[in-house]
């Protein structure tokens, strides 16, 4: 249940939070202003750290009482020991990485479980845009091809293959609509955000 304090929690985060066990030790990579960690700490008694690179967001995390470590994820997760976390979150951040595979391997190293989300490039409006000869621009991919921070464009099917390669088993995979509701029928067509729950093999 989401209390008033977290009424504004993004729909996808609210959905994802239910995959995190109460009391879990959590690492939130690309934690932004710490909303998710704050929610997990207060509502689910979780502990752990957020990692964020953006100067402007560090004070907001600190102010919420989220332990945040400022660093570039591309630099790897050497700060954290093997199996230090029950759950590693990497939400809407992986697609901005240059070294996706390296980051994913490090996630598998430091966590027992991982929850990874990214914009689903195979969402039908994106397919339609490509068919009409243009790179997709949508709510989940709100950038032009020349200014997007999203370096890596993946589909639900693509990601499963890479996860398997780095030693992560997919235990759940859900495509979410813009409103955070899961898509049951044709998820790789109809879901704008791909969310994977993975476990170390």
């Amino acid at each position: 249940m989401i209390t008033e304090r977290f009424a504004g929690l993004r729909a996808d985060l609210a959905f994802i939070a239910h995959w995190v066990e109460p009391g879990a030790r959590v690492l939130d990579l690309g934690c932004g202003d710490g909303a998710m960690m704050d929610y997990l700490q207060v509502e689910k008694n979780c502990t752990g750290y957020g990692v964020e690179i953006d100067d402007a967001r560090i004070p907001r995390c600190v102010h919420r009482g989220v332990s945040v470590i400022q660093q570039d994820l591309e630099g790897g997760l050497a700060m954290f020991a093997d199996d230090a976390f029950d759950s590693v979150l990497c939400l809407s951040a992986l697609q901005m990485m240059k070294n996706v595979e390296g980051v994913l391997r490090d996630i598998a190293r430091v966590g027992r479980e991982a929850i990874v989300s990214f914009p689903n490039f195979a969402h039908w409006p994106h397919r339609l845009a490509l068919l009409s000869g243009h790179m997709p621009v949508s709510e989940s991919l709100p950038y032009q091809w020349y200014d997007t921070p999203n370096l890596r464009c993946a589909t639900i099917s693509d990601f499963s293959d890479l996860a398997d390669e780095v030693g992560l088993r997919v235990i759940e995979c859900v495509a979410l609509k813009e409103n955070g509701a899961p898509v049951v029928f044709l998820p790789n067509w109809r879901g704008s955000l791909a969310v994977f729950r993975l476990r170390k093999k």
Partner: peptide
């Protein structure tokens, strides 16, 4: 500073770290 943070993280202490450019 990261050495300090890493040592604290290893002890599961609450620690925030800002690296100001």
């Amino acid at each position: 500073s990261r050495e300090i943070v890493q040592a604290l993280v290893k002890n599961e202490r609450r620690v925030s770290y800002a690296e100001i450019d």
